[in-house]
Amino acid sequence: MTTDNAPGTYDLEAGRERTQPVALTVNGVEHRLDIPGRRLLSDALRHDLGLTGTHVGCEHGVCGACTVLLDGQPVRSCLIFAATVQGREITTVEGIGDDPEHPSPVQQAFIDSHALQCGFCTPGFITTIEAFLAENPDPSREEAREAISGNLCRCTGYQNIVTAVCRAAELKRAAGRATAGCAGCPGSGTAAGEEQP
């Protein structure tokens, strides 16, 4: 036995690692899992729930590929144990857009701007940018650059990703105008200052 085999974490009679019940809410659906205590959120999403949109790159918090939203805020799913986020709302890239026919505004902006090549890093960018635009709906290129500074991409050189952030902001604003109308926005379906129903 090495220190890797901590006493009590293996069920010697059953010949397997002990598990514990964990309830996770992912993309609005509650899942009840029976998983080892050491299961990272990234692995729980991929292995146990089959949500392979979340990619695992460095597994120590540097690359950003595994970024998901925890209560709407971007976090590294490789630096979180699944058992420690029970009862929290987790959103993966599938929860942002899972239909190739109807990509989300951020996904459409990546297509429009040629903001991906191999695509490995893209889910981490999509989740990060989704949360960023919720806080800052009209960013400058400089702010966009800062917003994605925690995500690594080895293909694009980032310029087109910065463009995609700004393009996504445009698409989101346009979508907001088209569907709900927006008091105070020029071109909105509702006159400025009018009460929203």
């Binding site: 220190t3 890797d4 085999n5 901590a6 009590g8 974490t9 293996y10 690692e17 002990r18 514990q20 080892p36 205590g37 050491r38 990272l40 692995d43 597994e59 120590h60 144990f81 058992a83 420690t84 029970q86």
Partner: peptide
């Protein structure tokens, strides 16, 4: 790059 086996307690 996976943690060694452990038990997670949530007091």
């Amino acid at each position: 790059m996976k943690p060694a086996p452990l038990t997670c307690h949530s007091p």
